[in-house]
Design a protein around this nucleic acid. Structure first.
Lengths: 146, 146
DNA sequence: TCTATATAAATGCAGTTGCATATAAATTCA
DNA sequence: TGAATTTATATGCAACTGCATTTATATAGA
């Protein structure tokens, strides 16, 4: 079966439009506040979540959905900017271990107020609590999350 | 008020992940079938919707949410590929009128089966009819529709 | 009418992405 | 063990994007 219903097509069309609109709006707010792009935050946040032990690039790749080459270069820029450190990996000579630096943690802390304001402005403000819950659940189904 | 609820933040996070995942998957399917990117389809579809009278670039800009320079270059590529025609605009010497060509219409027709299969595969298959309807409605609220 | 401003579209340049491939270490298996 | 394969990461190059600015025309105001 490869015939989406009218309803499915509309949901798809709105997913394209709405995600584009909301993402750009949040990106724009962050930039206007003088901060780096969302992708930087996302990657650093994953590193923060695992604490001091750090993560391998290929693990980050899965978590962030970034393409391998894309991640490789983002990591390069973040390391360049001093927000993360690349340590050699003792168990695997090919890889490295990425660890958040103090500056990286500080960036996350400084960005969050602007970021959360943008989220509230472009998402929270437009949905009731119940709707936000539904939206999260439905989007989760699209990527196989419960 | 700029404090999003936990629920809002989760909805946001899933919007980022799910839209990225689903968009890339659909793009990948189209490319695998030998077709140009989604953006080409979207733009040509807008032209088809208005029929023979065509659209001005600035009108397309609003409909597609593309940035001005971005649209300008996409139009250039599409004209280059023969999918649309740029006619001078009699009412406004600065602008042009973009009209779908026969080849453009043919591309839309050839792409649609692959496109709709991808939509069904990555969206329709994962949601009930009722859920798809809800998702469309909720996403619509994010961009001020309905 | 003539100048100032606003709007439509294009473009040079720098930064980013995608693709293909390279490099290098790990793993498999004959 | 050693050659073949797989996995982890990086990179050259071409295409694409964003930003700032340019070009051209239209509109507004003195």
């Amino acid at each position: 079966m490869d015939e989406p219903s009218e309803t499915t097509v509309r949901a798809w069309a709105r997913l394209v439009k709405a995600s584009h609109a909301v993402l750009s709006a949040v990106e724009a707010d962050l930039k206007a506040a003088g901060f780096p792009p969302l992708a930087w935050y996302d990657l650093l946040l994953e590193l923060e979540r695992v604490g001091g032990e750090g993560l391998r690039p290929f693990e980050l790749e899965r978590r962030t959905l970034l393409a391998q080459y894309n991640l490789s270069r983002l990591v390069e820029r973040l390391a360049q900017a001093g927000y993360l450190e690349r340590r050699p990996c003792p168990e695997d000579g090919r890889g490295s271990i990425l660890v958040l630096t103090r500056a990286g943690r500080a960036l996350l802390r400084r960005m969050w107020p602007a970021y959360r304001a943008a989220i509230e402005d472009h998402v929270g403000r437009r949905l009731s609590e119940r709707e936000a819950e539904q939206l999260g659940r439905l989007l989760g189904k699209l990527v196989g999350q419960a």
